[in-house]
Write a protein that binds this DNA or RNA. Structure first.
Lengths: 147, 147
DNA sequence: GTAGGGATACTCGGATAATGGGTGTCCGAGTTGACAAGG
DNA sequence: CCTTGTCAACTCGGACACCCATTATCCGAGTATCCCTAC
């Protein structure tokens, strides 16, 4: 049981948006370079975030992606579900004679316990001490990518 | 993000063991028939449970599998980790200049929240009202499979 | 009666597909802004 | 000065390929029990 790499990329990308001043735009290429992955692949991930309503894409020259919601509204859960979907952890299709599958119900409850944690945790919370913990040059390079 | 079918089979199999009197043995074939899957495939799953020390296998005629631990010790987490392993939900291998990945740390905390739930939840707890909710004939068919 | 030798009923483990999802790549299409040429 | 055409910088989306884990299936090997036969 593992989350896909795409989820990791999406979370990191959204974290970059948390660092930028509101309304700023950034292209796929600088985002891809920061994470050292292919721009075309990252674009596929970003379209999922667009469909989830978290960011906006503007085509054309000087285009790119812009954060569309308040930073405080971006929870881990929201990003994860945008990529992974909201299917349940374990779906039991065995022929249970009567009543539902108790195992499935228990797993659903366990999943909900984790989702509650991920819903309360906002991405912007991670930036509390970011400046102190990371070299200034690195932070500057991220900020410079926005326009 | 989903658990494998094998995990579901393992959980159901262990639940059958919870219904049987302690020390009783059951073969792969009746277990496979109850879940309507292939016996050879189920046997591969059961070897993982054996290696985890939860059940024991006795070869030869009248052989089969026997529960090796007290029923109260069989938690969801133990069964799941026996099948899925204990790898973390999200492993970030991006080049973080200094310090670790904050996203990875947060995901680890979320995972721990679910694991705590699954560790406290024992399989035997599901059998509280099992007799009332299921037809007597079904229960009898399960019990008859043990010897 | 007792010992030995199958036959039988099981599990164990390796080898081998088949399937599906994750992970990318490639390319054409559409969109916008900047710039230059021409009236 | 205004219009128009061209180019470049972007995103968007479908089609395609690759890799790997899951999900099995098959078969030979090992092991214990039972029964039957021979001495």
């Amino acid at each position: 049981m593992k989350y896909s790499k795409a989820t990791n990329y999406a979370l990191h990308t959204m974290l970059y948006f948390m660092m930028a001043p509101a309304g700023k735009t950034i292209g796929v290429q600088p985002l891809a370079e920061l994470q050292e992955i292919s721009p075309t692949y990252l674009s596929k991930i970003l379209t999922k975030l667009v469909k989830a309503g978290m960011i906006e894409s503007t085509p054309g020259v000087n285009g790119g992606y812009t954060l569309l919601v308040p930073k405080e509204d971006v929870s881990f859960l929201r990003v994860i579900q945008a990529i992974e979907g909201n299917a349940s952890l374990l779906h039991c299709d065995l022929g249970h004679v009567s009543a539902g599958c108790l195992i499935q119900e228990t797993m659903a409850a366990a999943e909900q316990s984790m989702e509650q944690y991920l819903q309360e945790k906002k991405l912007v919370d991670l930036l509390q001490n970011f400046d102190q913990e990371h070299p200034q040059e690195h932070v500057a390079r991220i900020m410079a990518a926005f326009h």
